[in-house]
Amino acid sequence: MSWLLNSSIGRKLIMSVSGFFLVFFLIFHATMNMVAVFSEDAYNTICGLLGANWYAVAGTAVLGGFVAIHFIYALLLTLQNRKARGNANYAVSVRPSGVEWASQNMFVLGIIIVGFMLLHFSQFWYKMMFTELMGHHEVALGTSTVSPKDGAEFVKFYFSHLWVVVAYLIWYVALWFHLSHGIWSAFQTIGTSGKIWLSRWKVIGNIFATVVMLAFAFVTIYFYARSVIDPSTVAMYY
């Protein structure tokens, strides 16, 4: 199986498969977020399940692994590709019509996404699963303390800050661009694409990216709007 690591198509397959996995995770995450809109209790139950249980930790490790693989291979391929391009750059270079902007900027988009991911982790994962793993049962949130299992409180707290909301929305836009190219590209790489399916996967990829990102954005804006309309829900943190 050394071809997987050594050949260009093998490396691309790794990108494709790890990408698919992350897409599935996004579906799960978006669904879970939507639950918070309807029932904070239900959301907290899910957060509880995802706490310091062995399967949640294992799942997180696997997820982290895929993110790492996706990122490392992106880095490897980008370096290899830059070398293949040669040192000389074109003096005039035009993006031909029909070529998506995202497709030529996937690595930059990826870095933006990872940057916001760190923010996200510091706000949620670090204060939830990580805290639990450290053996604590309480964590500071604003001027108050809450249980690390009480996910809904984290959501309400962070999404009451306008800058956080704006930052997350930027993140979603970057993710949307990344997915709009990434999804059909992943199908192209594993070879399940032909003259007709090529355009179908593009449409499917765009619809998917839009739906999932709208779901994320909806939840984010929803909680911000709630905090503005009814500040009492988050007053204890200020």
């Binding site: 198509i9 391929l77 070529v99 003259k195």
Partner: peptide, 26 residues
């Protein structure tokens, strides 16, 4: 280099060779 499916090749190809061929190669 490796293909990242930007499709620039297909657009600039004077003979309009489709990138669906790349999928078949994969």
């Amino acid at each position: 280099g490796a293909c990242t499916n930007t499709g620039a090749c297909e657009v600039e190809c004077p003979k309009s060779i489709s990138i669906s061929n790349i999928a078949r190669l994969n």
